[in-house]
Design a protein around this nucleic acid. Structure first.
Length: 587
RNA sequence: GGGGUCGUAGAUCAAUUGGUUAGAUCGCCAGCUUGUCACGCUGGAGGCUGCGGGUUCGAGUCCCGUCGAUCUCGCCA
């Protein structure tokens, strides 16, 4: 070891000891005589004092610059009372340097880990090794480690086995776009990196490994978002001989453990369970942010009766008119700002945004004249509005009204600081619809995936009204993010057949695409169910961050490039020849 | 594939309506400085205003294209 201690661990009790420390020069202060260095490693900061009495060492100390890597041997000394630094954990002591070795001079970096104004992301990612020295980033990676550790401990204590599944697998055409890996040995054939270990974990259930988990790397070649990276980590779980409730309570226990270990707090369990129908009605989203109210209220009956053509015709054509009440916001939102909000909801397909300022018992709005006194009072009562409130309404199809109002709800809450960013508000959303109508292809699509078991009492509806069939699937939502998703799997081949038929997948196609899973299910498959949690997102939420790049050591940019290594990059022709690949890049 | 924001010194930002020599702070370099801890003081260097076109007497500023970053719609069973 080149050092006897780390920079964060020394205290008054160490006074008199001779220590050797290694680290980076965080800051230097040169007084011509005395030179002070704050020495940094990942454990903390400590001040080192260089005295001119050791002339040779002192000369070298004067040449030190930020981010140089040094090794110092010296004595721990107490600081006089008036020279202590309360901001430093080690602020009651100094290290009086006796020897100094410069292990490595640093080029002047483009930015410093200590600087308060962060440079743009491109630069931070290009020089990620500098960015990673920042305490905030360190804290994120430490928290991530602790979450992985607590997760492994929890599942281990509950008799789960962590089993690794392949990275090189078979492409299945459903779902997200695959990352492909060409085979050298099999000309013209490709592996796919896993979008999730879904099929492997079901096969593990058939094989009798009835409690499985894995911190699994997953890959999806889709466009990125603030909460989406092309490679990410799932806490993947599957259990046999269980029902939906067993999965939920197992994950309740995990969440309780994580909140305890990482926050030192008690999480109330069981976590609330809401139905998909309920959250769509109340929040317009299947991943509602439950930290604030601003709930949607249906105004359909009033809309049908009023004289406002847009509202009336929406109801007549089977659409919905819903509103949200923003307490005491009538003055805060000018006409100009409301125009911006109107543009905002148009992104989600809404054709407009109606608004009312609530006065004493009446409404003030450009469209108020279309609502008689009774209608106005009815709206005020329905919205439970107070004078000074602002009401926004969207009239459109159910889908569009959900998308527009839920986005508006989140935006208003953020602008008006209606929630504590540190809070974690976690709940289950259950009973998702089994299918979604695909209007382009004129067929049903699986909402979750094709192996998901319908709610038992809805099975007859498969023949009569597939849109009404609920799935035994569940999402864990937290602060407006989908934080986990899972389902009970089908283990009955007749039901599976029916689902495939509805999805427009013929028996031949099913065998071709999923034959290996279907075959496995024929060899004694136990009833099983599972779930997968987004580890990166959970770290993000525990940190109250809104960006997934904050919790990944080497994240990719929005165009999925790695600014540090320059990946992806062209390869040698010879490599391509080995793989039997010719590239054809459109001009 | 679509929409929004951004790109000026190493970093963060400014630059009136299109108008003279593109500024500030931090950092960097040199000197001074023995108790600082965001040390201080003095001096200095540093700019293809992302890139390419266009309009104009004149472009950091306006227009078109392009590259990159970011947010977002679509996409993510």
């Amino acid at each position: 070891m080149l050092r006897t201690h780390t920079c964060g661990e020394l205290r008054l009790g160490s006074v008199g000891q001779t220590v050797t420390l290694c680290g980076w020069v965080n800051t230097y202060r040169d007084f011509g005589g005395l030179v002070f260095i704050d020495l940094r490693d990942r454990y903390g900061l400590i001040q080192v004092v260089f005295n001119p009495s050791k002339a040779e060492m002192h000369e070298v100390a004067r040449t030190l610059r930020n981010e140089d890597v040094i090794r110092v041997t010296g004595q721990v000394v107490a600081r006089p009372a008036d020279m202590q630094n309360a901001k430093l954990a080690t602020g009651e002591i100094d290290v009086q340097a006796g020897e100094l070795e410069v292990l490595n001079k640093s080029k002047t970096p483009p930015f410093f880990p200590t600087q308060t104004d962060l440079p743009n992301e491109e630069l931070r990612l290009k020089y990620r090794f500098v960015d990673l020295r920042r305490p905030e980033v360190q804290q994120a990676l430490i928290l991530r480690h602790k979450m992985s550790k607590a997760t492994r401990d929890y599942f281990d204590e509950n008799n789960f086995l962590e089993i690794e599944t392949p990275m090189l697998g078979r492409s299945t055409p459903e779902g997200a776009r695959d990352y492909l890996v060409p085979s050298r040995v099999h000309e013209g054939c490709f592996y796919a990196l896993p979008q999730s270990p879904q099929i492997y974990k079901q096969i593990l259930m058939v094989a009798g490994y009835d409690r499985y988990f894995q911190l699994a790397k997953c890959f999806r070649d889709e466009d990125l978002r603030a909460d989406r990276q092309p490679e990410f980590t799932q806490i993947d779980v599957e259990m046999a001989f269980v029902q939906q409730e067993d999965i939920l309570s197992t994950i309740d226990g995990l969440m309780k453990r994580l909140v305890k270990d990482l926050r030192g707090a008690e999480l109330q369990t069981p976590l609330p369970r809401l139905t998909h129908r309920e959250v769509m009605e109340r929040f317009g989203s299947d991943k509602p942010d439950l930290r604030f109210d601003l709930e949607l209220k249906c105004l359909g009956d009033i809309a049908a009766a009023c004289d406002f053509g847009v509202f009336k015709s929406t109801i007549e054509s089977g659409g919905r008119v819903r509103g949200i009440r923003v307490p005491q916001a009538a003055e805060k939102y000018s006409r100009k700002v409301i125009d911006e909000l109107t543009e905002f909801v148009k992104q989600y397909g809404a054709k407009g945004l109606a608004f009312f300022r609530v006065k004493d018992g009446e409404l003030d709005s450009p469209i108020a004249k279309f609502f008689n006194a009774d209608h106005q009072k009815a709206i005020i009562t329905r919205m439970a509005a107070q004078p000074g409130d602002l009401i926004f309404c969207v009239a459109d199809t159910f889908k569009v009204s959900c998308a527009a109002l839920s986005a508006l709800r989140n935006r208003l809450a953020r602008e008006l600081n209606l929630f504590d960013p540190q809070e974690l508000k976690i709940a289950w959303v259950c009973d998702f619809p089994m299918f979604q109508w695909n209007d382009e292809e004129k067929r049903w699509d699986a909402e979750h995936h094709p192996f998901c078991q319908p709610v038992d009492e809805d099975i007859p509806l498969l023949d009569t009204d597939p849109g009404q069939v609920r799935a035994q699937s569940y999402d864990l939502v937290c602060n407006g993010y989908e934080a986990a998703s899972g389902s009970v799997r089908i283990h009955d081949s007749a039901v599976q057949q029916k689902i495939f038929n509805l999805l427009g997948i013929t028996n031949e196609e099913a065998e071709l695409r999923f034959g290996f899973l279907l075959e496995a299910l024929r060899y004694g498959a136990p009833p099983h169910a599972g779930v997968a949690l987004g580890l990166d997102r959970w770290v993000m939420m525990f940190l109250a961050s809104d960006n997934i790049r904050d919790v990944i050591a080497f994240p990719k940019t929005q165009k999925a490039s790695d600014m540090l290594t320059g990946a992806p990059a062209p390869v040698d022709l010879r490599q391509l020849r080995d793989l039997h690949i010719k590239v054809d890049v459109p001009k």
